[in-house]
Design a protein around this nucleic acid. Sequence first.
DNA 1: CTCCAATGTAAAATATATATTCCATTTGCC
DNA 2: GGCAAATGGAATATATATTTTACATTGGAG
Lengths: 71, 71
Amino acid sequence: MMAQNRVREIRSRVGMAQKDLAAQVGVTRQTISLIEKGDYNPTINLCLNICYALGYKLDDLFWVDEGKRRS
Amino acid sequence: MMAQNRVREIRSRVGMAQKDLAAQVGVTRQTISLIEKGDYNPTINLCLNICYALGYKLDDLFWVDEGKRRS
DNA sequence: CTCCAATGTAAAATATATATTCCATTTGCC
DNA sequence: GGCAAATGGAATATATATTTTACATTGGAG
């Protein structure tokens, strides 16, 4: 039950490279890469910083598929 | 050091005890307590589970305007 | 095709989210 | 006031998010 996200889609739409987004939110490029890959579970503060950098809100960028929620 | 949130407010409005919310999202009561206290920085999956348990959206419970964040 | 920037990936180290246990304090109810 | 449930808080342990370094691969521009 890993959260889904639209970070890659929105980032490239905005025309930003991973390293630019990483620099702007204060993490490494690898962290952005792994988040986009969906391989893990960022903290809410990092998610908020990504939202600020891309100009979107939490619910635009992060969600969980209905079927995959814990019961 | 971390972002404020409306978990306590909404949880008590919904009439749920910390231990009930904790059980429903699959963490310990202490974790809920610390999150409500604002003392730290939960993962997005936990935030999503809390949202689901309380019937709210991420932006309702965890959004903070960029200018208003404590650093 | 070549070159370079962007991205993927992996191993080891560090930071921190979360668990566990236990006790203290508060809050509401009789 | 007294009791019980709810919450706060600390100390230690574990899981995992994130960093660091380093190299491989992909994709686009020329």
